[in-house]
Design a protein around this nucleic acid. Sequence first.
DNA 1: GCCTGTTTGAAACAGGTGTTTGATGTCTAG
DNA 2: CTAGACATCAAACACCTGTTTCAAACAGGC
Lengths: 205, 205
Amino acid sequence: MATRDDILDAALGVFAEHGFRAGTVRDICDRAGANVAAVNYYFGDKANLYSEVILHAYNLASSSEPMPLLGSEASDPASHLRLWILWYVRRILQFERTDVGRLMAREMAEPSQALDRLAQRSILPVFSELSRIVQAVSPKFLGERELKMHCISIIGQCLVYRSGSSMLERLDPPHFGFDDSEQIADHVSHTAISAVHYLATETQS
Amino acid sequence: MATRDDILDAALGVFAEHGFRAGTVRDICDRAGANVAAVNYYFGDKANLYSEVILHAYNLASSSEPMPLLGSEASDPASHLRLWILWYVRRILQFERTDVGRLMAREMAEPSQALDRLAQRSILPVFSELSRIVQAVSPKFLGERELKMHCISIIGQCLVYRSGSSMLERLDPPHFGFDDSEQIADHVSHTAISAVHYLATETQS
DNA sequence: GCCTGTTTGAAACAGGTGTTTGATGTCTAG
DNA sequence: CTAGACATCAAACACCTGTTTCAAACAGGC
């Protein structure tokens, strides 16, 4: 059963690097030091292997830093929002260099059926927790859609540092990386906080 | 020479749908009503065809609504920012359903050499124009990095509606689409304007 | 030691890929 | 009319893909 795990690890690297289609089982088996037939023996076919790799990658990702929950620390909502954003930005930018992150990025750009199971258990909790925090920060009660857009704005400002990295790299360097997490978190949280306060006092068109 | 253009059009559709690797020249030639050898006859090889398709797609994209330049209309900077963001959001969300947009999205997620030539002539002007507008909106002079982060935040808030659409679709519907462009532009411009004003009055950590 | 189920191995298979070939048609200049 | 360039076509080529086959090696229980 050791070769099964070897194949799983090797497949993670190969799929992260080349994607599902372009990643070959021969490459995987070579890296795992196994025979070509091993993939079909243990996983049935290539597609099934991929599904298991996604699960494997998710388990690896989940074992990292846990999400800071509202109320877990006795701080004001504003600084908690900054803490949460810092956690999210770190998660995003840390992913950039790992196989797990590159795999997830591929899944986000071109989702496969394998993602569906994880999405409900991964994306939704993150989003609803962020909603709670933003609502706590806001001086007035935010409607559902209004709240949603604020959260999307925050997510978007963080995600762009990875999903738009191919664009950003083509501007004048230096590019933003993991070391800039704090600065990015500062900026995004300031933007978000000022947005909810501004929208609370001004009349929205 | 008509078949050359037919192949170009067909290849745009095939590459947008399946990507460079998974898109086959046989599929392209079938759609174009041409022989398999036509691709190599007119374009040398598949990679070269892809490069020309990227150029072709860019020309199609450029012939759409032009970017609203600062000073072209006699309006205050704030409403001009909203106008610019609306233009950008529309461009982003309109792309979602067209072959050109899907191709560009693929290129952004996994850039090929073909993108390099376009990037300098497409991304940079957009970004520098946005920088000018944000600077005009701001009550105080913004430093290079500060200005850059504001612009990235705006870009990110718009881009997320496409790059993160696979995530957003998994939240409770209805999802945001082209018809919500105005609302999104309102929200993003309000956020951006309040951010530059807030950061101008508060002391940034 | 032997037997049984599990695991590995080299080779082959069937199908699809981009590309090349050489013949055939088509049109235009001399 | 003819020569030559251009364009199209069916067929074949060489290669790579995931998958299967079947024999050999290995494991542990009796």
